[in-house]
Amino acid sequence: MWAFTLRRLLYAVPVLLGVSMLVFALIHLAPGDVVDILVPPEVPKEIADSLRQRFHLDEQLYVQYVAWLGRLMVGDFGVSFFTGRPVAEELFGALGNTLVLALPAAVLGFLLGIALGALAAYNHGTWLDKLFSATAIIGVSLPHYWVGIVLVAIFAVVLNLLPAQGMGFEGLPTSWEHVQHLVLPVVTLSLIPMGVISRLVRANVLEILSQEFVGTLHAKGLFSRRVLYHTLKNAAPSALALMGLQFGYLLGGSILVETVFNWPGSGGLMNLAIFRRDVPVLSATIVVLAAIFVVINILVDVLQALLDPRMRR
């Protein structure tokens, strides 16, 4: 088991190196360099060139890449062009805010998804199955940024029950007012994981229920609750893998929902960085989000291997 974990961790190294190369290449593929973005066109060429020298932009690309990678490794993400604050400070604050959204959204989406999927499978062919399956397919087909707008229109504008925008104040929710800010974005974000997990759980449970060992368990006189336990245990590994992926999507893909709700998270930060052409913030955000996604995938693999020894190949 330890060997498996170590192997997975080691394999992450080349993947992350590839990620950093890709991000670096993308940024340097964009037309114009950083100085063109920062300096107005009427500024004399000598000043622009001296700036290029100062930022080491006149050096070979691979030299620039190695220097950038070296700084990333020691946690030095540079300074924001726009605010002048260290990128690490801005990024980790924003990531914390995204986590405040993503965690409850994941818990809500996964619990609902498992419940709906398992109930649909156990009531296979009945109207309950049809209702829950329809809910799941609607969940995966809805553009969630649109759902956010509709929820704001209903609950903030018409009913005036919940705040439409923002986080209240940053940090962990401590008061009822703070929690109120969470409700709409969390519900919006939980829709996709709910639909995706529910569809997988339904398919998995149906398949397991059709297998011979379930009949044997019934024949042995086990209560249906024990059978349910065995079914869920068999359905768990693949559901777990999907949940890990979905959690990664919630963290990395929250940009749309964060934009709708003006949430000061990592997605919102990335959106700002794109429009301000704030290259240090943008590159650091992409690399860190991808690194988190890789780590989540490793955790999922290890957990899966713990649950199902066949995975430890």
Partner: peptide, 16 residues
């Protein structure tokens, strides 16, 4: 290693 939406946003965000 990139969630698909992140990759798409990164590419369009950088290329325009």
């Amino acid at each position: 290693a990139f969630p698909s939406i992140l990759l798409a946003i990164a590419i369009t965000g950088i290329l325009g």
